[in-house]
Amino acid sequence: METAIEVSDLHKSYGSIKAVNGISLTVSRGEVLGLLGANGAGKSTTIECILGIRHPDRGKISILNMDPYKERKKIFEKVGVQFQEISYQDKIKVSELCQVTSSFYKNPAEYAELLNQFGLNDKQHSYVAELSGGQKQRLFIVLSLIPKPDVVFLDELTTGLDPKARRMVWKSLTDLKKKGLTILLTSHFCDEVEVLCDRIMILKKGAVTFYGTVSEAISKSPFNQFENAYLWYADEEEENEDL
């Protein structure tokens, strides 16, 4: 299968703290990879290095066979990103933020359709600042899909969403995945990971403690529920070997 994201031996330190310590991963086209781990395990740093906005100390990275640092303009024509922290201009309206985002791309999606799909069609003329946390979160997923991406990065996809909105987001992403969208996401919710991810990578203190499918994660652990297995791999109190 065609490779969408390839990372080998990624290292990144902040001073003496090793934020990312030798991560390698491959995501094929149309595959969903979930990056899991406790806060501070290195998920966001890994994503930021892959996106080329942080310089790794070591390691090779390619997205759609391009170097994210050198071929920024070309890559981000086809890659959408939703960051963990939501950022927008004060006093900007939903439609304006969507228009500005659309203007960045040669061939953007119809943002009105995406807003509709994510239950925000009646919010077009609202100020972004006045949206609820969950609505903002969905808006930023919409923004990440405006480029009609081949690959999206979703950092803490559904944090702050109510159960109904999470289902809505899952459904939309599953539909997009069927059309061949590649997704790299981080999440704290095990049910979400079980529904969406083809494979997962669990990080602990910047290193990989598990890489494989959800069912492999369960079978290689002493537990028979994914949440327990996840905690076993990610929990800082436990001692276990790197797999």
């Binding site: 080329g52 920024r72 303009k73 950022s87 201009q89 960045f104 791309y105």
Partner: peptide
């Protein structure tokens, strides 16, 4: 507000 950062992941 990290708006410049968001621009870095666009063309």
């Amino acid at each position: 507000r990290k708006i410049l950062k968001r621009f870095q992941v666009t063309p």
